[in-house]
Amino acid sequence: MPQAFKTVTRAVNLRIREDVRDLIDHAARAHSKTRSEFMIDAARRAAEDTLLGQTLVRVDPETYAEFLTVLDQPPGGEGFERLMAAPRPWKG
């Protein structure tokens, strides 16, 4: 079998409280999944969300200084004025 198609799995052992395991089992059944499938899917989604939430942008020092200058300026312009004039639903 070509290397690209081999699937390697490894065991992960977790110790969790019984009530948490029961909750996971209940949720897994609601999705017609095994406990392992449910936990792997949930852990994978959490890992992806964590990594997608981290953004690293590399720029030269001059570009970074310009970026900081823009951040230090007060907001303004037509779009900002329109946003500030919009009704606030929480002030009913």
Rank of each mutant, 00 (worst) to 15 (best):
residue 74 P to N: 00
residue 12 V to S: 01
residue 46 A to Q: 08
residue 20 V to N: 03
residue 38 F to D: 00
residue 41 D to G: 03
residue 65 A to F: 05
residue 41 D to H: 04
residue 58 R to D: 07
residue 72 D to Q: 10
residue 69 T to G: 15
residue 21 R to L: 12
residue 54 Q to W: 06
residue 39 M to C: 08
residue 78 E to A: 14
residue 75 P to E: 11
residue 31 H to Y: 09
residue 76 G to D: 03
residue 52 L to F: 02
residue 32 S to G: 10
residue 79 G to I: 15
residue 77 G to K: 11
residue 43 A to K: 05
residue 10 R to C: 05
residue 3 Q to A: 14
residue 66 E to N: 14
residue 82 R to V: 13
residue 12 V to H: 05
residue 51 L to F: 09
residue 60 D to A: 09
residue 73 Q to R: 15
residue 77 G to A: 06
residue 64 Y to P: 13
residue 4 A to T: 11
residue 66 E to L: 15
residue 62 E to Q: 13
residue 56 L to K: 15
residue 64 Y to A: 14
residue 41 D to F: 05
residue 36 S to F: 08
residue 37 E to T: 11
residue 50 T to M: 05
residue 58 R to P: 03
residue 11 A to C: 05
residue 50 T to D: 02
residue 10 R to L: 06
residue 39 M to T: 09
residue 42 A to V: 01
residue 18 E to Q: 13
residue 55 T to L: 00
residue 55 T to C: 00
residue 71 L to D: 04
residue 24 I to W: 04
residue 60 D to E: 09
residue 27 A to Q: 13
residue 67 F to H: 09
residue 27 A to L: 11
residue 70 V to A: 12
residue 22 D to L: 14
residue 71 L to S: 06
residue 5 F to L: 14
residue 46 A to C: 03
residue 51 L to K: 06
residue 10 R to K: 05
residue 74 P to L: 01
residue 3 Q to P: 12
residue 66 E to V: 14
residue 59 V to L: 15
residue 48 E to G: 01
residue 27 A to M: 09
residue 41 D to K: 10
residue 17 R to M: 08
residue 19 D to K: 02
residue 40 I to S: 02
residue 44 R to A: 09
residue 31 H to A: 13
residue 68 L to N: 10
residue 74 P to D: 00
residue 58 R to M: 10
residue 41 D to I: 03
residue 47 A to V: 11
residue 20 V to G: 04
residue 35 R to I: 07
residue 33 K to N: 02
residue 7 T to R: 06
residue 13 N to M: 01
residue 22 D to C: 08
residue 15 R to C: 03
residue 79 G to S: 09
